[in-house]
């Protein structure tokens, strides 16, 4: 059992080491700054700039979280605190069901509904002159926004079901204490329950976040996969997971190509690791603040 535990614990390091060894050839021939900050990806000409892909990954995840976090936390608060038990009993299984839908189904559904929707609203929103919305440019719909929306929907069930559980685990007496002083239900949620629930909600968001960062299939199908630095949410993008999934195994005759893709995988892993670590630190700080009061 000890061996098994040690093996599980060291797995992450083994993966990182393997990825590092396989991406060493390209790291030896090109400076890291060029690989990270160059925007041209022309493998046949020996140019491997990962900058647009790194940026796309961060953008698409950020969009997804901006949509998912407020909506899912509000729905969770409604389900946990306002809804009747009978409604909660009916809705929560449906939310959990969402978590079980395979990503490829989300992808197909995104292509059929979200992509046309984004293509439809792009000119309208674009004409409003919002900087990140691209002034009046034509969009196919395969875009950062489409990827973000599909991802957000995939993240909903994760955040909602954990947050509902967190709220339900707050002792009934806390509600009673607050309400018995004439506080409204919202004041009770905001000032009393939220303080207890905050670490749990943060954990839910972190879990959703890491799911969004690494999600491949659904994003790949709706995000357009064009290797540019996106300047608007209606531009297509090419996140790291999609880049790896689309190209690995093909055109392996091109020198350094597989090494570049493995470097991409390593970078993705490091980004996720970095964010998880940062999230951990934030969580510890929140927990300390909550207990200190």
């Amino acid at each position: 059992m000890l061996v098994a535990a040690a093996f599980a614990g060291s797995l992450a390091f083994i993966v990182i080491l393997a990825l590092y060894l396989r991406s060493k050839p390209i790291l030896d021939t090109k400076p890291l700054s060029e690989l990270l900050l160059n925007s041209s990806w022309l493998p046949s000409q020996g140019s491997f700039g990962l900058y647009p892909a790194i940026l796309s990954t961060l953008y698409v995840t950020a969009i997804a979280m901006m949509i998912a976090v407020p909506l899912s936390i509000l729905s969770a608060i409604y389900l946990a605190e306002y809804a009747k038990e009978s409604l909660r009993r009916r809705v929560l299984p449906l939310v959990d069901l969402l978590a079980g839908i395979p990503p490829v189904v989300y992808g197909v559904w995104g292509v059929l509904t979200i992509v046309p929707f984004v293509a439809y609203i792009a000119p309208v929103v674009g004409s409003l002159g919002i900087p990140a919305a691209g002034a009046g440019r034509y969009s196919t719909g395969f875009s950062l926004l489409a990827g973000g929306i599909v991802l957000a929907i995939m993240v909903f069930p994760v955040i909602i079901s954990i947050t509902v559980q967190v709220f339900r685990s707050v002792p009934f007496e806390v509600r009673e204490a607050s309400l018995s002083m004439g506080a409204t239900q919202w004041q009770t949620v905001k000032h009393a329950l939220m303080r207890v629930a905050l670490p749990g909600i943060a954990a839910a968001v972190i879990l959703g976040f890491s799911r969004a960062l690494g999600e491949t299939m659904a994003v790949l199908m709706v995000v357009g996969n064009v290797f540019i630095v996106p300047s608007s949410v209606f531009d297509p993008a090419y996140p790291l997971p999609a880049l790896i999934a689309n190209n690995y195994g093909e055109m392996m005759s091109i020198p350094l190509y597989d090494s570049a893709l493995l470097l991409a995988a390593l970078i993705l892993l490091l980004i996720i690791l970095m964010f998880t670590l940062a999230a951990r630190l934030i969580l510890i700080r929140i927990e300390r603040r909550v207990t200190v009061g």
């Binding site: 002792p171 007496e173 009673e176 204490a177 303080r195 009061g293």
Partner: peptide
Amino acid sequence: FLSQKPCPLPM
């Protein structure tokens, strides 16, 4: 209202 088991608010 004063409850049976005192429940301080989390603050």
